[in-house]
Amino acid sequence: MEPQAKIETKDLNLFYGTFHALTDVNIRIPARAVTAIIGPSGCGKSTLLRCFNRMNDLVEHTQVTGRIAIDDQNILEPQTDLIALRRKVGMVFQRPNVFSLSIYNNLKFGLRIHGMLSRRNEIRQSVRTGLEQVGLWDDLKDKLSANAHTLTLEQQQRLCIARVLILRPDIILLDEPCSALDPIATLRVEELLRVLCKDYTLVIVTHNMQQAARVSDFTGFMYLGRLVEFADTQKIFTNPAEQLTEDYIRGSFG
């Protein structure tokens, strides 16, 4: 049975000026699962990810055509509420980009901009829940006022995930979230993603094929701005339908 699609694109095309970055992408990303997007550098996987929270809007001369439906709502409509969209679709970046603020204020930031600041003990509760969800509470509960830059990179990246979680999103986009981390930290963050996918829809862009194989339920392979193949991760890695996918997975190019 086809699982329910959380994100669905229809004939999605994207141009940066005259550069055709995405061509006719049709993808159905299932809810409450980890979907990995793999492909060589410059294939458009990050660009695709940034379509889902309309971060590409920030790049001048970007033109998008087609349809991106999240919960059957076309987010490319001009009247889309970007603030609500980005709260619902959180994003974690490649570098652990914590603000140069205390751990507490890093988490409070999102609450503040969304007018979710309530009573002090409710904020504390949100902060605690957020840190617990990413497994940082026990380590950090006594140093919430420390500058977030004093944490290890792994902790910083977990904090970035907590910063997204605290806004209670549906979808979390992760743009190569482990590329700044060492192998052991990478494995631990991947474990976290496996836990989170019980409640959230995760989309992870990675150029690390082993990571895609370990962490994802579904995998899409992109090449030169096109989605070449999309299937169960197991199928992609054992029995891909396309020759191109097989060549990439075997390491013939990319």
């Binding site: 603030i83 709260r87 959180g90 603000f99 503040r112 901009i113 970035c160 806004l167």
Partner: peptide, 21 residues
């Protein structure tokens, strides 16, 4: 630029981003 990017990705308006980030 990443400061602006994170702030906007968390759903901040442009003015909030300038004001706080």
């Amino acid at each position: 630029l990443t400061y602006r990017e994170i702030s906007l990705s968390l759903g901040a308006t442009k003015w909030q981003t300038i004001r706080y980030c």
